[in-house]
Amino acid sequence: MKQYFSLFRIRFINGLQYRAAAFAGLTTQFAWGFMEILAFSAFYRANPAAFPMEFSQLVSYVWIQQAFLALFMPWGVGGNAVEAIVSGNIVYDLARPMDIYNRWFFETIADRVSRATLRCAPILMVAFILPPSFRMALPSNLWQLSMFLISAVSAMCVVTVYCLLDYMSAFYTMSRYSAIFVILADFLAGGVLPIPFFPAPFRKVVELLPFAAMQNMPLRIYSGNISGTDAVRGIGLQLFWLAVMLIFGKWLMKRSLKRTVTQGG
């Protein structure tokens, strides 16, 4: 366990080095969230009855999404893994006494946490003091907040094991190209549009997919769009998909490595 901790630590320190990147990310995400809310408010003005969630819920959804973007985004983390596979350097990783799957998992999580830590506080701080129509609200009670925290950790793990599947696809395609993986996950997890805005029949299916277990769940729990037993059921769905993709991922890793080793890299 100690080795994972020090891996985590070095990644974290490394992430902290990029000061300007953190400030820039902050501004970008803040401006992005602001524009999103403005766009939604135009639609809200046009037809409040057609709005599938409370406007204040949407505002919280957007700010939490921007503040914790790094935790849940399906892109831009753990690029080394794919390079290691494509270049064949993965054989050196095999020589280390550490499970590769676990290592990538922890590295990716560390990247996410270090980036999010730097960025979330200022965004949240500003989001709480904005004029009322843009202001982020606290969850209605402590129960909702704790559900959110559990759900956030699960969502981060789900999106990470999903990303690992994406990395491993490089064993077979030998390229970096995974845009479709990313776009699919971003869109169907409510990254572009919260899932309640999807047309009804489509939405029913999407709610059950593994993507719904990603950012969709914590963001909607925080904002109060999903609450009570629905929240518990939602976390259950997350854990289910986490287990499925984790088992599949580990199996795929074993298989891919065997293939790589027998082919001599």
């Binding site: 639609f43 776009i183 869109f187 572009v192 805005f197 999807f198």
Partner: peptide, 18 residues
């Protein structure tokens, strides 16, 4: 395929709000 995400978003929003 990638750029369809944006267009799909627009379609979803405007079928709902007209």
């Amino acid at each position: 395929v990638m750029s369809f995400a944006t267009v799909t978003g627009v379609l979803f929003m405007l079928t709902r709000f007209h």
